[in-house]
Protein backbone atom coordinates (compact mmCIF):
# COMPACT_ATOMS: atom_id res chain seq x y z
CA UNK A 1 0.00 0.00 0.00
CA UNK A 2 1.62 3.22 -1.21
CA UNK A 3 1.20 6.47 0.71
CA UNK A 4 2.39 10.02 0.00
CA UNK A 5 1.48 13.68 0.60
CA UNK A 6 -0.22 15.89 -1.97
CA UNK A 7 -0.04 19.61 -1.06
CA UNK A 8 -2.72 21.55 -2.97
CA UNK A 9 -1.82 25.03 -4.14
CA UNK A 10 -3.73 27.66 -6.11
CA UNK A 11 -1.34 27.78 -9.06
CA UNK A 12 -1.65 24.04 -9.68
CA UNK A 13 -5.46 24.38 -9.66
CA UNK A 14 -5.24 27.25 -12.17
CA UNK A 15 -2.93 25.29 -14.50
CA UNK A 16 -5.11 22.18 -14.28
CA UNK A 17 -8.29 24.16 -15.07
CA UNK A 18 -6.57 25.72 -18.12
CA UNK A 19 -5.50 22.27 -19.35
CA UNK A 20 -9.06 20.88 -19.31
CA UNK A 21 -10.35 24.03 -21.03
CA UNK A 22 -12.30 25.37 -18.03
CA UNK A 23 -12.52 29.15 -17.80
CA UNK A 24 -14.67 29.16 -14.65
CA UNK A 25 -13.16 31.93 -12.42
CA UNK A 26 -13.79 29.76 -9.33
CA UNK A 27 -10.47 28.08 -10.20
CA UNK A 28 -8.28 31.21 -10.25
CA UNK A 29 -10.05 34.38 -9.08
CA UNK A 30 -10.04 34.54 -5.27
CA UNK A 31 -12.18 37.72 -5.13
CA UNK A 32 -14.88 36.21 -7.33
CA UNK A 33 -14.67 32.87 -5.50
CA UNK A 34 -15.18 34.52 -2.09
CA UNK A 35 -18.57 35.81 -3.30
CA UNK A 36 -19.86 32.34 -4.27
CA UNK A 37 -21.58 29.52 -2.39
CA UNK A 38 -18.31 27.60 -1.93
CA UNK A 39 -16.68 30.78 -0.57
CA UNK A 40 -13.24 30.43 -2.13
CA UNK A 41 -11.14 28.81 -4.82
CA UNK A 42 -11.86 25.08 -5.14
CA UNK A 43 -10.35 22.39 -7.36
CA UNK A 44 -12.12 21.03 -10.46
CA UNK A 45 -13.69 17.55 -10.13
CA UNK A 46 -10.82 15.62 -11.75
CA UNK A 47 -8.01 17.67 -10.16
CA UNK A 48 -6.67 14.87 -7.98
CA UNK A 49 -5.10 13.38 -11.11
CA UNK A 50 -2.39 15.99 -10.47
CA UNK A 51 -1.44 14.07 -7.32
CA UNK A 52 0.71 12.02 -9.70
CA UNK A 53 3.17 14.95 -9.58
CA UNK A 54 3.85 14.08 -5.93
CA UNK A 55 3.67 10.27 -6.17
CA UNK A 56 7.28 9.12 -5.69
CA UNK A 57 6.57 5.87 -7.53
CA UNK A 58 4.57 7.30 -10.47
CA UNK A 59 6.07 5.57 -13.52
CA UNK A 60 4.92 7.99 -16.24
CA UNK A 61 7.22 10.88 -15.27
CA UNK A 62 10.77 11.17 -16.59
CA UNK A 63 13.36 10.88 -13.81
CA UNK A 64 16.44 13.13 -13.94
CA UNK A 65 19.43 11.13 -15.16
CA UNK A 66 17.44 8.00 -15.92
CA UNK A 67 16.50 6.57 -19.33
CA UNK A 68 13.00 7.49 -20.53
CA UNK A 69 10.95 5.41 -22.94
CA UNK A 70 9.81 8.34 -25.13
CA UNK A 71 11.71 9.43 -28.24
CA UNK A 72 15.07 11.21 -28.33
CA UNK A 73 17.68 10.32 -30.94
CA UNK A 74 15.76 7.08 -31.40
CA UNK A 75 11.96 6.61 -31.45
CA UNK A 76 12.21 5.01 -28.02
CA UNK A 77 14.66 5.28 -25.17
CA UNK A 78 14.43 2.61 -22.51
CA UNK A 79 13.01 -0.66 -23.78
CA UNK A 80 10.17 -1.88 -21.58
CA UNK A 81 10.93 -5.31 -20.10
CA UNK A 82 8.64 -8.13 -21.14
CA UNK A 83 7.96 -9.18 -17.57
CA UNK A 84 6.44 -6.27 -15.67
CA UNK A 85 7.63 -5.59 -12.13
CA UNK A 86 5.73 -4.06 -9.23
CA UNK A 87 4.06 -0.71 -9.98
CA UNK A 88 6.40 2.15 -9.14
CA UNK A 89 9.58 0.10 -9.13
CA UNK A 90 11.93 0.87 -12.00
CA UNK A 91 11.86 -0.20 -15.61
CA UNK A 92 9.40 -3.06 -15.09
CA UNK A 93 6.79 -0.51 -14.03
CA UNK A 94 7.40 1.57 -17.17
CA UNK A 95 7.03 -1.51 -19.33
CA UNK A 96 3.78 -2.33 -17.60
CA UNK A 97 2.44 1.23 -17.81
CA UNK A 98 3.21 1.42 -21.53
CA UNK A 99 0.74 -1.40 -22.18
CA UNK A 100 -1.93 -0.36 -19.68
CA UNK A 101 -4.67 1.97 -20.89
CA UNK A 102 -7.07 3.85 -18.69
CA UNK A 103 -10.48 2.15 -19.08
CA UNK A 104 -12.63 3.71 -16.35
CA UNK A 105 -12.40 6.28 -13.58
CA UNK A 106 -14.63 7.11 -10.63
CA UNK A 107 -14.49 9.91 -8.08
CA UNK A 108 -16.52 10.00 -4.85
CA UNK A 109 -16.52 13.46 -3.28
CA UNK A 110 -16.92 14.17 0.43
CA UNK A 111 -15.89 17.83 0.45
CA UNK A 112 -14.34 20.39 -1.93
CA UNK A 113 -10.55 20.48 -2.26
CA UNK A 114 -9.04 23.92 -1.62
CA UNK A 115 -5.62 25.59 -1.86
CA UNK A 116 -3.76 24.94 1.39
CA UNK A 117 -5.08 21.42 1.82
CA UNK A 118 -2.34 18.89 2.41
CA UNK A 119 -3.85 15.58 1.40
CA UNK A 120 -2.48 12.18 2.25
CA UNK A 121 -2.99 9.74 -0.58
CA UNK A 122 -3.22 6.03 0.12
CA UNK A 123 -3.49 3.66 -2.83
CA UNK A 124 -4.38 -0.01 -2.74
CA UNK A 125 -5.17 -2.55 -5.44
CA UNK A 126 -8.87 -3.28 -5.96
CA UNK A 127 -10.74 -5.86 -8.03
CA UNK A 128 -9.22 -7.68 -11.00
CA UNK A 129 -11.12 -9.32 -13.86
CA UNK A 130 -10.71 -10.52 -17.44
CA UNK A 131 -12.81 -10.10 -20.58
CA UNK A 132 -12.48 -11.41 -24.13
CA UNK A 133 -11.52 -8.59 -26.52
CA UNK A 134 -13.60 -7.92 -29.66
CA UNK A 135 -10.60 -8.66 -31.86
CA UNK A 136 -9.53 -11.73 -29.90
CA UNK A 137 -7.13 -11.88 -27.00
CA UNK A 138 -7.83 -11.43 -23.32
CA UNK A 139 -8.23 -7.97 -21.78
CA UNK A 140 -7.01 -7.84 -18.20
CA UNK A 141 -8.71 -5.22 -16.05
CA UNK A 142 -7.46 -4.09 -12.65
CA UNK A 143 -8.64 -1.48 -10.14
CA UNK A 144 -6.51 0.87 -8.10
CA UNK A 145 -8.29 2.67 -5.26
CA UNK A 146 -6.86 5.91 -3.81
CA UNK A 147 -8.16 7.59 -0.67
CA UNK A 148 -7.42 11.29 -0.17
CA UNK A 149 -7.52 12.43 3.48
CA UNK A 150 -6.93 15.90 4.91
CA UNK A 151 -4.73 17.02 7.83
CA UNK A 152 -7.50 16.01 10.26
CA UNK A 153 -7.64 12.52 8.76
CA UNK A 154 -11.07 13.21 7.25
CA UNK A 155 -11.87 11.51 3.97
CA UNK A 156 -12.03 14.12 1.15
CA UNK A 157 -12.21 11.99 -2.00
CA UNK A 158 -11.94 8.41 -3.23
CA UNK A 159 -10.55 7.88 -6.73
CA UNK A 160 -10.94 4.48 -8.38
CA UNK A 161 -8.93 3.87 -11.52
CA UNK A 162 -9.56 0.91 -13.80
CA UNK A 163 -6.71 0.03 -16.13
CA UNK A 164 -6.82 -2.47 -18.98
CA UNK A 165 -3.76 -4.28 -20.18
CA UNK A 166 -3.65 -4.67 -23.95
CA UNK A 167 -1.23 -6.57 -26.10
CA UNK A 168 -1.34 -4.18 -29.06
CA UNK A 169 -2.33 -0.74 -30.29
CA UNK A 170 -6.09 -0.19 -30.47
CA UNK A 171 -7.21 0.62 -34.02
CA UNK A 172 -8.56 4.09 -34.80
CA UNK A 173 -11.91 3.28 -36.40
Amino acid sequence: MAEYRFPVDASQIMLFARAIGDKNPIYHDADYASSTEVGGIVAPPTFTQAAAQYDPGFPLRPRIGEPWFGSGREPTGAKPKEKAGDAGKGEGAIGQSARVLHAEQRFQYFRSIRPGDVLTVTTRPGKRWEKQGKRGGTLKFSESVSEFRDQQGELVLIATMVGVETGQAVSQS
Partner: peptide, 27 residues
Protein backbone atom coordinates in the same frame (compact mmCIF):
# COMPACT_ATOMS: atom_id res chain seq x y z
CA UNK B 1 -8.66 12.00 -18.14
CA UNK B 2 -8.45 15.07 -20.38
CA UNK B 3 -11.80 14.03 -21.89
CA UNK B 4 -13.21 13.33 -18.42
CA UNK B 5 -11.92 16.71 -17.21
CA UNK B 6 -13.43 18.52 -20.22
CA UNK B 7 -16.73 16.67 -19.69
CA UNK B 8 -16.59 17.85 -16.08
CA UNK B 9 -16.66 21.46 -17.33
CA UNK B 10 -20.18 20.85 -18.66
CA UNK B 11 -21.14 19.20 -15.35
CA UNK B 12 -19.93 21.93 -13.00
CA UNK B 13 -21.31 24.64 -15.30
CA UNK B 14 -24.72 22.99 -14.91
CA UNK B 15 -24.86 21.65 -11.34
CA UNK B 16 -22.64 24.34 -9.79
CA UNK B 17 -19.28 24.30 -8.01
CA UNK B 18 -18.78 21.94 -5.08
CA UNK B 19 -22.07 20.14 -5.79
CA UNK B 20 -20.89 16.82 -7.25
CA UNK B 21 -20.85 13.84 -4.91
CA UNK B 22 -19.94 11.18 -7.49
CA UNK B 23 -18.60 11.27 -11.05
CA UNK B 24 -17.54 8.26 -13.08
CA UNK B 25 -16.60 7.62 -16.69
CA UNK B 26 -15.79 4.77 -19.04
CA UNK B 27 -13.43 5.64 -21.87
Amino acid sequence: MLSMGATGVMLTNWVGDGRLTDYSARF
